[in-house]
């Protein structure tokens, strides 16, 4: 396999984590909107969403940090 292909596959696997974080965010925002529409448990929904979204974003962030710092070093002369 070429380096380029490997890199792209790696990026795709990483993007799954972001996909998860983004879909969780989208889902929670949707739930907050629904709760606002039906005027039911708005505050609870809001706080729980904020908490959960943060966790998922930090996790995805840490993984990306690892990914990019591992790859950045590669380009420097050894």
């Amino acid at each position: 396999m070429k380096d380029r292909t490997v890199y792209i596959i790696q990026l795709i696997t990483l993007s799954f984590n972001w996909l998860l974080a983004i879909s969780v965010t989208w889902w929670f925002v949707h739930l907050v909107v629904v709760s606002n529409q039906v005027k039911d448990t708005q505050t609870a929904s809001l706080w729980i969403s904020i908490l959960a979204i943060t966790v998922f974003w930090i996790l995805a962030g840490v993984l990306s940090y690892v990914f990019f710092s591992l790859h950045r070093r590669e380009k420097e002369p050894a």
């Binding site: 710092s69 591992l70 070093r73």
Partner: peptide, 28 residues
């Protein structure tokens, strides 16, 4: 393995980044 290794070569900087990430994760 090549895909999953994420280009890790064991350079000090890579090690440092890894350690940092492990520390953050551990606390989280």
């Amino acid at each position: 393995y090549r895909i999953l290794a994420w280009g890790y070569k064991g350079t000090p900087k890579q090690k440092h980044a890894l350690e940092r990430a492990i520390n953050i994760l551990m606390v989280m």
